[in-house]
Design a protein around this nucleic acid. Structure first.
Lengths: 226, 226
DNA sequence: CTCACATGGATAGCAGCACTTTCTACTATC
DNA sequence: GATAGTAGAAAGTGCTGCTATCCATGTGAG
């Protein structure tokens, strides 16, 4: 069922010019040319297109980052954890540059405490050092103390991620699972975390308000204000 | 120790033109005018500036989103969980629009299963529905099954967040704790999660490679390739 | 006192990014 | 053989986050 670009656009929900743009940028493989100016696109293209949109819209990745990730995905030599590295690099915020000696040491101690391999040059590690540096800069030295809780929470998550990936039939599927698990996983985690936070803080506030009898306007605190 | 703009720039590491820009955009309160064209800035400004940079660089927030968050921070009426709502709205990816009926139902069922209050209009909920919709679009229907694990993991995190916030001395500090906890917390979580993932997948790969005796190039998989 | 230099405030400009529009062939089809 | 669709390239657009320039005013070292 190879189709032309207009149909590809319809199926994927992506405008034709944007598809052309993605083709130019190498996010989408060229269609099969049936003549110098006529090409056919397949389901692979539809799928790839959706993946790209997921990374761009949900993951907030730049086009360059998406290209990087897809490159890793398409590389037949790429191992699972190399692909993971590439993906987390793409998802991570661009290197802020400022790094603090103390933050470095805090990160090292944390990694050691967790019994992990110390990889100071990994993207994740750099990102963590950046976070710790910033935390110190804004005067939240105690932030570092929450790291171990994060690690404990992250462990089962990583296990699920991995199980999810390993349950894939083919290697291609597994690699895509890495992408989906990371991008969607991080987004879902942020959302769920916010929900739990609100749930807890709501209980607290309720208790507090019933004590203080404040003029609680009881509208849903979660309406959009845009 | 009020200082002039040049010194403020030095202390915060933010260029003078950028400070002026932030002043114009209302991210930074005006300095105390000692004359029509002479103002003094205090430590408050240094601190605020660092907070802004943290949100922009680490959190990836837009200037408009930062203004929104700071507005909530400065509002003396704002309750804790309202502030949280504002912050998670700012951190969340801009609404992608496409929503799927099934995803909606999955989210509702999830919330119910967790025993939470169903707030379909909250930003977090919308974000979650967006993620689930996307997951289905890219053919990862099973992604939804991982949600409960996320929730279990998120619970202790939220407790830590809350404890962190409540340990603050003043209300201002508490509100700032919300911001720091969310922005830095999400960034840290992503980093830690990536580290755990790599740790686990590394073990797996090692096992796999010793079986298959692959031509493992044994370089650190986590070097930058930029 | 005075004059180089800094400041505030405003406006304009710039670079990058993610598209979008416009153009020119050409082709397949009705 | 009109008509609609397509490829491919290039230029244009709109937005964002700064940056540069101006200039009238003020400050402070000598």
């Amino acid at each position: 069922m190879p189709v032309r670009i207009a149909e590809l656009s319809r199926r994927s929900g992506v405008p034709v010019p944007t598809i052309k743009y993605y083709l130019r940028e190498g996010l989408l493989p060229a269609g099969e040319l049936t003549s110098p100016n006529q090409a056919r696109y397949s389901d692979v293209h539809v799928h790839r297109l959706r993946l790209v949109r997921a990374m761009v819209e949900l993951g907030g990745l730049s086009i360059a980052a998406v290209r990087e990730v897809l490159g890793a995905l398409d590389d037949p030599e790429k191992s699972l954890h190399k692909a993971m590295g590439t993906v987390s690099a793409a998802v991570a915020p661009p290197d802020s540059g400022s790094e603090d000696e103390v933050a470095h040491e805090q990160a090292r101690a944390f990694v050691e405490r967790q019994g992990w391999v110390y990889r100071p040059r990994s993207y994740a590690h750099t990102a963590l050092v950046g976070v710790l540096t910033t935390a110190r800069e804004v005067g939240h030295e105690r932030f570092v103390e929450t790291l171990d809780v994060l690690a404990d929470a992250a462990r089962p998550l990583a296990e699920v991620d991995l199980a999810y990936v390993l349950s894939a039939g083919s290697k291609d599927e597994a690699l895509e699972g890495v992408v989906v698990g990371t991008v969607l996983g991080d987004a879902a985690m942020a959302a769920v975390r916010a929900m739990v936070r609100r749930e807890l803080s709501g209980q607290l506030d309720d208790a507090e308000e019933s004590r203080s009898g404040s003029d609680g306007n009881d509208t849903d605190p979660e309406r959009g204000e845009s």
